[in-house]
């Protein structure tokens, strides 16, 4: 069994490293976390990661912080959560502290702006890569309800700008109803076969 201390340190350093590169919004870190903790380290399953992301989305506060708490807790309990929280908060804390001193110069610097502009394409590609993988997995499930939810919530969110919270509420309800439906159906089938 791996040394517990190693896990805490690894959680901290991994999250620190990821957080230092979360340009362009919280969802980038979800993509990075998925690659690191699901694909590379295999400390968590993809479905579990999506569950945690759903909870992170449903809670107030930055999704990156929420996801970090859940991931750390899932992998290594409360201390694990502490490790990931620190790993997530420290990079922006340090970077912002330094930059706030000369922020006007930073904001107007041509090189900085050029590099950031270049990064946007890269960030879009990273997110696209993860979305393609996750999306194809949803299609592979061959569950029509899931596909409808996926396409529907995309349209509602992107084209109509509906608030995330409403979408989550509705989809959660659909999921619950569907599950209860299947339980009822299972009971009925059980009765018929008797």
């Amino acid at each position: 069994m791996v040394n517990k201390k190693y896990i805490y340190i690894k959680l901290f350093t991994s999250t620190f490293y990821l957080s230092a590169f979360t340009f362009g919004g919280g969802y980038v870190i979800i993509s990075l976390m998925k690659k690191k903790f699901v694909d590379d380290l295999q400390w968590i399953e993809e479905d579990e990661m999506l569950n945690l992301t759903a909870i992170a989305q449903s809670s107030p506060g930055p999704v990156a912080v929420n996801a970090a708490i859940l991931l750390g807790y899932h992998v290594a309990g409360p201390l694990g959560a502490l490790a990931t929280i620190l790993g997530t908060i420290l990079p922006p804390f340090i970077i912002l502290s330094v930059i706030s001193v000369f922020y006007a110069a930073f904001r107007d610097n041509i090189v900085v702006n050029a590099v950031l502009k270049g990064m946007q394409a890269g960030v879009a590609a990273v997110i696209a890569d993860v979305v393609l993988k996750l999306g194809s997995n949803v299609f592979k499930e061959k569950d029509i309800v899931s596909v409808i939810i996926m396409i529907g919530s995309f349209i509602l969110s992107f084209l109509f700008g509906i608030n995330v919270m409403y979408i989550i509420l509705v989809c959660g309800c659909i999921g619950a109803v569907k599950a209860l439906f299947q339980v009822k159906k299972g009971q009925k089938d059980g009765e018929h076969s008797q």
Partner: peptide, 20 residues
């Protein structure tokens, strides 16, 4: 389980929306 199974595909599309 049901709630989460409904949420998972939604999460994928929310990430997609952000990416787009």
């Amino acid at each position: 389980q049901g709630i989460l199974s409904g949420l998972r595909p939604a999460i994928v599309s929310l990430i997609a929306s952000a990416g787009l």
